[in-house]
Design a protein around this nucleic acid. Structure first.
Lengths: 254, 254
DNA sequence: CGGGTGCTTGACCGGCCTCAAATTAAGTGG
DNA sequence: CCACTTAATTTGAGGCCGGTCAAGCACCCG
């Protein structure tokens, strides 16, 4: 596996991993840091499509050689592992299940995109903000479990949140003020603290089913519970094996 | 391809192929008709996630055994080919590239979901309607080419369009009236006629890149230009190789 | 300390929603 | 083929959520 990595690549916060319109002949696996996919409109406005945590695959596009219709930008300093499409062929010969693994990862993105769509299409600004924050918090906790407090580093500006939710940053600000006044959460300078999780879930109007689906995130070391043979990797093993590698940079997610 | 297959399952228009919350242990390949994926909100409102044309795969979910967070409903009388997850394993042993094929299909859905997301988040009602109609028209034409006129059977109600675009059917109606008055298109009782394609593209404010990406749809007989080796399969070879394996219906479907 | 980025708040406005009712098309049983 | 029913389309009046514009403030970093 390691042979096929054409090297880890480091990206500074705010830099594009690839830009909209780029011709894409490689795929990337995010191994550290936060990023987001985004599309640009003709008038220059931006829509953030989703937020990307380590383990995700970027740059796998339907038609080979086509130009990307969206870009990916690093939110924090990040690192990606680059795999050429040609190497992917060779790799799949040794690891036939890699196609399914890829399908699984893309399918996760699709599910999140669908959730996001329902939120944008049908929910109010308050619901959307609550929805997004819950989603990010739960996905974060699924990857780095063991935190006791409902607090996290969330490397977003209010403009990012607005661009993700189809709102202006001005309005996001008003919503966050309301949530703060109601004692639901605080979000100041990239520090998120959820004071009343239940109330937040109530505001987001999310059903239990959806919450569950966000928790199925792979642990960081890459042993994911998707398995065509039907044997699940237990949470126990995942956690303990993660501890073994916890000091190092996250492994190649593929 | 149009040959009837014994394993097909027929669904009446308006019926669910599977419903939100269903436990999903099989995947489906839509072999005929139109369908759409949808999510339901707690208050009963509906968000249509995307429209599904023949060739797409339904029911491939991230976590096995989990409950679906969305449902799929047939728009017209439709037929699906059912594949058990267990059969999928066996199948993938004989055809290792099937994982990649699946990834490719899911990746197409994801791209469409991303486009849809950008439209919902950042575009006006007029732009959204133009966007959706263009998308459906182009995807339709990519699958059933050879039509001369800018006309098609579009089995949607105005309420479907509203539910897809996060609008009310009332407002969709007003937008369609405007587009009709401007001589751009007519859409009456499931018959769509585009009088001025260029003006429609102008209203949608879609860049050329995106239009192109919608045209990469597989033709109906399943010879898709996705190929890990980089050599495009011509229609000829794909068709003939399909004939060699046409004994089981599942193979054709993927 | 100064410059820049991001946050905060106010006043005003407009696009889309809500509610309601009339009209047309499609489906159904006699 | 026609009465009847139901679903879908059409149009209007009025209201609200979130956008726009503009200004001032807070925090960070060199």
């Amino acid at each position: 596996m390691r042979r096929f990595r054409s090297g880890d690549h480091r990206i500074k916060a705010g830099q594009d991993i690839f830009s909209p319109g780029a011709r894409c002949e490689a795929i990337y696996s995010l191994t550290g840091g936060w990023a987001f996919r985004y599309a640009l409109l003709e008038d220059g406005r931006r829509q953030i499509l989703d937020f990307v945590l380590p383990g995700a695959v970027l740059g796998f596009h339907p038609t080979d050689g086509a130009r990307a219709t969206y870009g990916v930008q690093a939110l924090t300093d990040a690192s990606v592992c680059v795999i050429r499409r040609s190497d992917l062929v060779a790799l799949s010969r040794e690891l036939p299940e890699i196609g399914f693994r890829l399908a699984w990862l893309v399918s996760r993105d699709r599910s999140l995109a669908f959730d996001h769509l329902a939120s944008l299409g049908r929910q109010s600004a308050h619901q959307r903000v609550a929805h997004l924050i819950l989603e990010l918090f739960i996905r974060y906790r699924a990857q780095w479990p063991g935190q006791r407090f409902e607090e996290m580093h969330l490397p977003l500006t209010q403009e990012h949140i607005g661009d993700a939710l189809g709102l202006t940053s001005v309005h996001v600000n008003r919503v966050l003020r309301d949530l703060r006044k109601k004692g639901v959460l605080e979000f100041h300078y990239k520090r998120l603290c959820i004071h009343d999780p239940d109330k937040l879930i109530g505001i987001a109007e999310i059903d239990q089913n959806l919450l569950q689906s966000w928790m199925g995130q792979p642990a960081l070391n890459g042993d994911v519970g998707f398995d065509l043979t039907g044997q699940k990797t237990s949470g126990e093993t995942a956690t303990s094996s993660k501890r073994r590698t916890s000091r190092t940079e996250t492994r190649n997610a593929l």
